[in-house]
Design a protein around this nucleic acid. Structure first.
Length: 424
DNA sequence: TCTGGGGTCCTAGGACCC
DNA sequence: TCTGGGGTCCTAGGACCC
């Protein structure tokens, strides 16, 4: 332990999706509520109220299972836009306590509160003030874990749930962690838990006792990191990074599970077009250009494949991304085999500053003749995005001439175009 | 019980280069 | 010509998280 331990808060919203739904429909309060879809739909539970949890319902459980366990539960669809809105309000509250905030997901955040004593007093006092502000300003309750590392803070907030504040006094980390099941450790899931159990390791304390050598032998690099975490240290990887650096997304994806499996090529390709458009729209919102495009394909029997391609030049154009995705699909789909899910993912981003005078950076990305086209299409798509924002996704479809044009470009053979670009 | 959708990180192998 | 070793990029799959 260093001479000046850090003070890390992990703030975790209680039953976030359910609580937000209750804000919109107060009659849900105190009832068994399941967020994620209708009781007879294909899908899983996104969140369950504490009342529903009493019946064994938990997130990631199939909706139909939840309906059997808790027949009187109220099933509601998720509303990501609402959760996103509330998440922003949560962030605003946190940001008043320290600029070193990092949203780890839509409903949880890490705060580096080191050195804020003069402003907010000792950790517990600061945490209670934060807890109070959160309640009054968002009408939502949270739990707060306080510790000297991210790992321990995260585990602590879990122990504090619901609606609690818990502080692990510096120096007592190992003792606090020792009696907990290994499963409580972030990063240890079903599979690793089973492997640890087979080795007779059940508690975090068991883990902390083992030598680095033993763990590395069985789990590689991950093993030594686990041992350090069991002692309460943020050992390498993401946990070791400073709090508050916003790095932007590393991948952007959309996927869709059909309500009924299909082998209809036109349906499958229309879905891929839609997913490509959704992905591209978000690329443009983030002003990102992607190099790697990945297709995900899940058959009825749940076997899943991913196929990726990384061309030289990055893009954010629907036409180009769809053309790649469709090629990957046609090359890899076993024709006639029914499909359960399709997904489109992009990664390997390069950011191109929109303020830059037109034609400087872009020249590097596309050969001269293609370049103007490129820019015009970029502008056209951005305009379409704006229209959709104004009038809604459903009501505004690409105009017919634009659409025809789009179709023509999609049907261009991408391989032929590439050859031309290279001057072959 | 018949298994969503959005992400992150890690591993392992092959290609390719020096 | 009978083969080393390291680094980097790419791909595929999988564990894990909310």
């Amino acid at each position: 332990m260093s001479a000046h331990p850090k003070t890390i808060f992990h703030v975790d919203m209680d039953a976030f999706f359910v609580s937000v739904e209750e804000l919109y429909d107060p009659s849900l309060k105190g009832k068994a509520v399941v967020v994620g879809g209708k009781r007879d739909e294909r899908g899983v539970v996104s969140a369950a109220s504490y009342e529903a949890r009493k019946f064994g319902v938990h997130s990631a459980m199939p909706l139909r299972t939840a309906a059997k366990l808790c027949p009187h539960a109220i099933f509601v669809d998720g509303h990501m836009d609402r959760y996103q809105e509330c998440s922003k309000k949560v962030y605003a509250v946190l940001n008043r306590f320290t600029p070193k905030v990092e949203m780890a997901s839509i409903d949880e955040a890490y705060l580096d509160m080191t050195g804020t004593e003069r402003l907010f007093g000792p950790p517990l006092k600061a945490a209670h003030a934060l807890h109070e502000s959160m309640k009054t300003e968002t009408q939502l309750s949270c739990s707060i874990g306080i510790a000297t590392s991210r790992v321990v803070a995260k585990i602590t907030s879990g122990q504090a749930k619901p609606n609690g504040v818990l502080w692990v006094i510096p120096g007592t980390e190992a003792g606090f962690l020792a009696p907990l099941d290994v499963r409580k450790m972030p990063g240890i899931g079903k599979v690793t838990e089973k492997r640890l159990h087979e080795l007779g390791i059940r508690k975090i304390g068991d883990l902390a006792k083992l030598t680095d050598g033993y763990l590395e032998e069985h789990f590689g690099q991950w093993g030594t990191a686990m041992a350090a975490k069991a002692r309460g240290e943020d050992a390498g990887g993401w946990f070791d990074t400073e709090i508050g650096e916003d790095e932007g997304p590393k991948s952007i994806s959309h996927e869709h599970t059909f309500s009924e499996d299909t082998r209809d090529q036109s349906v499958l390709e229309a879905t891929l077009l839609r997913l490509s458009e959704m992905v591209c729209r978000r690329l443009r919102e983030h002003r990102l250009f992607a190099r790697t495009m990945q297709l995900k394909l899940r058959y009825t029997d749940f076997t899943t494949i991913t196929r990726a391609h990384t061309p030289e030049s990055p893009t954010q154009l629907d036409t180009e991304i769809y053309a790649e995705i469709r090629k990957l699909f046609r090359d890899n789909w076993q024709r006639g085999r029914t499909v359960r899910l399709l997904g489109v993912s992009t990664s390997h981003f390069e950011q191109i500053d929109a303020q830059m005078p037109a034609g400087t950076q872009l020249d590097l990305l596309a050969p001269a003749p293609e370049n103007n086209q490129h820019q015009r299409w970029g502008q056209a798509m951005a305009t379409a995005d704006k229209l959709r924002d104004k009038f809604g996704d459903r009501s505004v479809v690409l105009g017919t001439s634009l659409k025809r044009n789009l179709r023509e470009r999609i049907h261009e053979n991408p391989v032929e175009r590439k050859k031309k670009d290279n001057g072959d």
